[in-house]
């Protein structure tokens, strides 16, 4: 057998590129070409649904991520340490010289100088999410906003926004990679992380979203698109036609959901109901109402 067998051309769709990036990252770390970088995963004011979504990643999965891609230093949901022992790590990191990537999910609550959301305490001194976002945000080599709340406030900032929540950019004057979605698809986060580790920052659009995941309108690749083109519309949920007239936000939302799908590719929102625009800026207030039965009725 030849030492260099002829292989079929590599697929260039988004999923295959992301899978190849992840594989390449594994290989480079295994060969020692890449040093494992530190990752801090900070949960702020939100539902902690992005870390749960991250656990749904399959290739790479969570085990691979912490074994071969990064040293995960901090995660409120997953770390063994608790109390001051846990929070102190963040202060040590901020005071040290070690490089790290910061991923943040949840919004920054500004009300009462940040007291509406505490990350923890040192002694009896409260450590607010606001303080931590600023402290670590300045220091990190890269900052990733993970999910709707971190990107621009999301559900945590929905009106009347009693906690005065804002996206991370609202308190951090620096370049941030933005991964909108409620929650984020695990591939969007893990693929972005892999790109950062191997090749630096991925190409971003003018809203700082990686083009490899957020370049195309859902509507343009929707499997229900032929019904739209022929003017065949569902009047209620559960019908297999275009959902435009019951309020689908696919025509304004840019993600690769129609091709990548969710949860190991088994299904996606439009496979069940409408898209509610959870990866669009301004979600949820600017995307509501999510379901209507009368959008174009006279």
């Amino acid at each position: 057998m030849s030492e260099h067998p002829v292989l079929p051309p590599e697929s260039t769709d988004n999923e295959s590129v992301a899978a190849r990036l992840a594989r390449e990252a594994k290989r480079q770390v295994a060969q020692g070409n890449l040093k494992k970088k530190k990752l801090v995963y900070l949960e702020l004011n939100g539902c902690s649904g992005n870390i749960i979504s991250l656990l749904n990643g399959s290739n790479p999965d969570f085990e691979y991520m912490i074994t071969s891609m990064v040293d995960l230093l901090y995660s409120n949901s997953l770390m063994a340490a608790e109390g001051e022992q846990a929070v102190q790590r963040l202060f040590d990191l901020a005071a040290g010289d070690e490089e790290f990537i910061l991923a943040v999910e949840g919004a920054v609550a500004l009300k009462n100088n940040g007291m509406y959301h505490l990350v923890g305490k040192i002694g009896d001194r409260p450590v607010t999410g606001l303080e931590m976002a600023e402290l670590l945000g300045k220091k990190a080599t890269h900052v990733i906003s993970v999910g709707a709340c971190s990107v621009d406030g999301g559900p945590s900032a929905a009106r009347p926004n009693l906690s005065q929540s804002v996206g991370l950019q609202g308190v951090l004057d620096r370049h941030i990679i933005k991964l909108p979605g409620c929650p984020v698809n695990p591939d969007w986060f893990l693929g972005t992380l892999a790109h950062l580790l191997m090749f630096g920052e991925p190409k971003l659009d003018d809203m700082n979203r990686p083009l490899m995941f957020y370049s195309t309108l859902i509507h343009d690749r929707c499997p229900r698109r032929p019904f739209f083109d022929q003017g065949i519309f569902a009047e209620k949920l559960g019908e297999p036609y275009c959902l435009f007239k019951v309020g689908c936000r696919g025509p304004v939302t840019r993600t690769d959901c129609p091709t990548r799908k969710w949860n190991d590719h088994v299904n996606w929102p439009i496979g069940a109901s409408t898209c509610i625009g959870c990866a669009q800026f301004g979600f949820p207030d600017r995307m509501a109402p999510f379901i209507s039965y009368d959008t174009t009725k006279e």
Binding site: C47, G57, S58
Partner: peptide, 22 residues
């Protein structure tokens, strides 16, 4: 991790996606 992921996959099979189903 693979099994809890599978439980969410089963949820998404009928519910569109998880977390936050449709």
């Amino acid at each position: 991790l693979a099994i809890s992921r599978l439980a969410h996959q089963l949820l998404a099979l009928f519910g569109g996606k998880a977390p936050h189903n449709h």
